[in-house]
Amino acid sequence: MKKNRLLDLFTNNRFYKSIFRHGYPDDDIKRSEVVTGNLLLHIQPVKVHKNTIRAGYTLGLGLIAFYLFIILTATGILLMFYYIPSIERAYNDMKDLEFAVSFGIILRNLHRWGAHGMVAFVFLHMCRVFFTGGYKPPREFNWGIGVVLLIITLFLSLTGYLLPWDQLAFWAITIVANLIGTSPPESIMGANLRQLVLGGTIVGQNALIRFYVMHVVVLPLVAAALIGVHFWRIRKDGGISRPAEE
C-alpha cells in the first residue's frame, strides 16, 4: 500500500503510539485495534451491521440527543463561572452574560436552545425505537433505562428553568411545585413533597439552591451513568435492532 508520508510522520512515532497503542488504522487489524485497544471497546464494537449506519433507519436521533448532552455539559460548565445561585445575584448575572461577558449571550443561547433540543430529540428517539419495534426482547431493559433517561432529561431541563430567576422561571416553577403539592394525600404527601422540593413554602433562595445543585451535580451525574449503561446495553443486546436476516 502506498504510504502517505505526512500521515506517517504524525502517526508512526513513539508519542502517537504511546497514546493510541497502534499505528494509523490503514489495515483491518489496526482498524480493529482502534476499538479493541482503546476504552472505546466498551462502547462501540469492532464491526457493526450495515443497518446500524443506515441513516434512514436510526435518523441519528439518539446520537443527536447525546451530542446535545455533551454540548450542554460543556456550555454549562462555562456558565457556572459566571452564575451565582443567589436570588440577589442570579438575575443580574443573566444580564451580565447578555451585556458584559464576551460571547456570554451566545453561551447562554447554546445552553438554552440545546436544552430544548435535547428534550425534543430524546422524545423523537423514543418514537423511532417504538415505530421500529426496537424495544422488544432482548432490549426490554434498555428501553426501560431510556424511559428513565427521558424523565431525567425533563427534570434536568426543569431545574435549569428556574436558574435565570426571571418571571418566566419563577412562575413556571411555582406551577410545577403546586402540581407536586397535589400528590395524595395532599395534607401529608403533597405538602411534604412540595416542602422537600422548594425547601420552604414559596419559591425562594432555598428552592434556587436546591434546583441549582440538582441541575449541575446530581442529575448530570445520574444521567451520565445511565447513558453509559444505555450504550453498553446496546452492545450486549446485539447492537441496534435490525430486521431478521433471510
Binding site: P25, D28, R31, S32, V34, V35, Q44, P45, V46, K47, V48, H49, K50, N51, T52, I53, E245
Partner: peptide, 9 residues
C-alpha cells in the same frame, strides 16, 4: 453484512 466501525461508523 458488517463493516468495520473505523472508518464507516
Amino acid at each position: 453484512n458488517t463493516v468495520t466501525s473505523w472508518p464507516h461508523l
